[in-house]
Amino acid sequence: MPNQSSSDIADLRREYTQGGLRRKDLPEDPLALFELWLKQACNAQIPDPTAMSVATVDEQGRPYQRIVLLKHYDEKGFVFYTNLGSRKAQHISHNNNVSLLFPWHVFDRQVIVSGKAERMSSMEVVKYFHSRPKDSQIAAWVSQQSSRISTRGVLESKFLELKQKFLQGEVPLPSFWGGFRVSIDAIEFWQGGVNRLHDRFIYQRTENNWNIDRLAP
């Protein structure tokens, strides 16, 4: 396979022909549209339909992004779980303004959520932790997320050690593992359009409702 050069990728493009998004078709509650789009992504059996990019900033204002899986959503916000010693958790402890991005390329769609991340309650975390497969529970104990390690073998040997330790009993919740709920201050829906005339609508929370605006592509 020939190497791809920067001049080659400059010419890579396609038309977005999946359809449009019109103001008259928008529900008053943005979660209704998000739920529809997520359901369509799940039904299409695309890989990881709940995958979202979580963007945070460090103490120097430098942005970072990583992919996590959405585990719950409702009018209170979008939920994900992580190691509380991870880079993302450390960023949130200093600046809890967070942006989420759902990239559903198969449908020429993306959704961006802006809000503030708050720690989940202990009860919520325990309930979710024990709903995970046992190997996933053990893996939470193995990794001090974002810390430097010498080899992959360090993780594998620790996993096997803990798997043997918890072979019969319940895996306890690690004190360093938890979840965050990102509130919905604003949510933007992007639908690709022909000739790059994309449809973009942003919902911004008001005191009692949502304000909806169309944005230029």
Rank of each mutant, 00 (worst) to 15 (best):
L31H: 03
N43F: 11
K165D: 03
I46P: 00
S136C: 05
D25W: 00
A41R: 01
A216E: 15
Q144E: 09
E124A: 10
R14K: 07
L155V: 05
S93C: 08
K127H: 13
S136T: 14
A89N: 10
V125Q: 07
A117V: 04
T151H: 14
G178R: 00
S7E: 12
D48L: 10
R181H: 04
Q164I: 05
F102P: 09
A140M: 08
S99A: 15
P133G: 15
S114C: 05
H130R: 14
L21V: 01
H130G: 05
G169M: 11
V142D: 09
D74L: 00
S93H: 10
R181S: 09
L197G: 03
K71F: 06
I202R: 07
G193I: 15
P103F: 09
G169Y: 07
T50C: 14
V126M: 06
L155D: 03
K127N: 14
I187L: 04
L100S: 10
A140P: 08
R14H: 12
H91G: 06
G169A: 10
L69P: 04
T56E: 02
L70W: 03
K134H: 04
A51D: 08
A139F: 05
L26P: 00
Y203A: 02
F107V: 05
A139L: 06
S157K: 15
D108G: 02
S5Q: 08
N95S: 08
R13S: 13
F34H: 02
S147E: 14
K39V: 07
E59P: 01
Q168Y: 05
D25H: 11
I92P: 08
N83E: 06
E161N: 13
H105P: 01
G19P: 01
L215C: 04
S175W: 06
F107A: 07
P49K: 01
F159V: 11
I149A: 06
P47I: 12
A117C: 03
D58R: 01
V171N: 02
R66W: 00
V125K: 07
D48A: 14
K71V: 05
F78I: 07
P217C: 08
L12E: 02
L160M: 13
E28V: 02
Q4D: 08
K76E: 11
M123N: 11
K116S: 15
S93D: 14
F80W: 08
V111M: 04
P2L: 10
W190Y: 04
N211S: 15
H130S: 09
E161M: 13
S183W: 03
E188I: 04
G115H: 01
V182K: 02
K76L: 09
S5V: 14
A32P: 02
R109A: 02
E207Q: 07
S157L: 11
F180V: 00
G85H: 11
S157H: 09
Q110W: 03
L38A: 01
L167W: 09
H198R: 10
S183G: 02
H91E: 12
Y16H: 13
L12G: 02
Q204D: 05
I138G: 02
V182Q: 05
R119K: 13
S122L: 07
A186M: 09
T206M: 13
G192S: 11
Q4I: 10
M1V: 11
R214V: 04
R148V: 13
